[in-house]
Computed example of a mutant assay.
Amino acid sequence: MPEGHSVHRLAKQFTSVFTGEQLAVSSPQGRFAAGAAQLDGATLLSALAHGKQLFLRFDNDRVLRVHLGLYGAWSFGGDATFRGASSIGAPRRIGESEQSADDGTGPAAYGGPPEPVGAVRVRLVSAHGWADLRGPTACEVITRAEENAARAKLGPDPLQPRPDGTEFVSRVMSSITPVGVQLMNQSVIAGIGNVYRAEVLFLQGINPWRPGRQLREDEALGIWTDTVRLMKDGVREGRIITTTVEARNGRPKRSAPNYVYKRTGEPCRRCGTPILRAAMAARTVYWCPSCQAD
């Protein structure tokens, strides 16, 4: 499932290529025809990400709310003025992915959007480009008031303009629920997924099963601080990289992207102990039993 940094990259891309544009909105698949009709011909005012949810705000007081879920993805294309990634999401069973749009397409080659491929739930078309949405968990047209209500149910987003960990620290430390479960709860912190959960807990040396009430305040704040840093890296790089940059031959280099995620049985990059895994909160959690001992 795409984690919060990917949704923020989507919001940035929509802001760059569609804001201020009158859009033709359709549902080639047909499942979203009624929703598309409410947006067709409206102008996109802004795009906002909160955690794993994207809110596209239009000038008719309507908002397109999208949650990509496990299989959702956006694909994009257009003329030379239409810059950005060609695909952001979780396409084709390969997990979270992003593909560059640097294919040399120019104005002479652009003749409008191509014929829809596959089950396109929503298609947005401007004078210069297009965007197709496939396979989302949630896709609905709501009002601005309903957007505010939906966002009020979410926890703080580490990628908000001025991230403050106070609310997260209070929420995570007030519960006996294991911290590894709480980090997957979008009402505690919005945007963290399975990769960030495993990696942040490793960096902080915290066992996933430790109850939130047993965290020290500095540990809870450390989780928040590392999450902010790593997710900002993800927005900049377009992928999740959590390992520290090492200098080799005078040049920065990472030996691998992650410390523990999907490294079951492999030696810990810090202590050499085999990495463990177990089911937690309907997903698989990874940790080092030595570096993250109770």
Rank of each mutant, 00 (worst) to 15 (best):
P2N: 03
E3N: 10
H8C: 09
R9A: 04
K12N: 15
F14H: 12
G20D: 00
G20C: 09
Q22V: 15
L23Q: 04
A24S: 15
V25Q: 07
Q29T: 09
G30P: 03
G41H: 03
T43Y: 07
A47S: 10
L56E: 01
R57I: 13
D59T: 08
N60M: 08
D61N: 15
D61E: 12
Y71E: 10
G72A: 01
G72P: 04
S75V: 13
G77Y: 04
G77E: 11
G78K: 12
F82P: 05
R83N: 08
S87A: 14
G89Y: 01
A90S: 14
A90G: 04
R92F: 11
I94D: 14
G95Q: 05
E98W: 01
E98S: 11
Q99W: 01
A101G: 15
A101M: 02
D102P: 05
D102Y: 06
D103P: 13
G106L: 14
A108D: 15
Y110E: 14
P113V: 03
E115D: 10
V117C: 05
G118C: 06
V120M: 03
V120P: 00
R121T: 13
R123H: 02
L124F: 15
V125T: 09
H128S: 14
G129L: 07
D132E: 04
D132T: 03
G135W: 00
P136V: 04
T137P: 01
T137G: 07
T137L: 07
E140I: 15
V141C: 05
R144L: 12
E147Y: 02
G155L: 00
G155I: 00
R162F: 01
G165F: 11
G165V: 04
E167Q: 13
R171W: 08
V172T: 00
M173Y: 09
P178C: 06
G180Y: 00
M184P: 00
M184T: 00
G193W: 01
R197N: 09
V200Y: 10
L201K: 05
L201Q: 06
I206H: 05
N207A: 15
P208W: 10
W209C: 11
P211L: 05
G212V: 09
Q214K: 05
L215F: 01
A220I: 02
L221G: 06
G222H: 10
W224I: 03
R229K: 08
L230Q: 09
L230A: 11
G234T: 02
R236E: 15
R236H: 12
R239K: 14
I241E: 14
T242F: 01
T244R: 15
T244G: 13
T244N: 13
G250I: 09
G250P: 05
P252Q: 06
P257L: 07
V260P: 02
K262I: 02
E266V: 14
P267N: 07
R269K: 03
R270Y: 07
G272F: 12
T273S: 10
P274V: 03
M280P: 02
A282W: 14
R283F: 12
V285P: 00
W287H: 07
S290Y: 10
C291P: 06
A293D: 10
D294E: 13
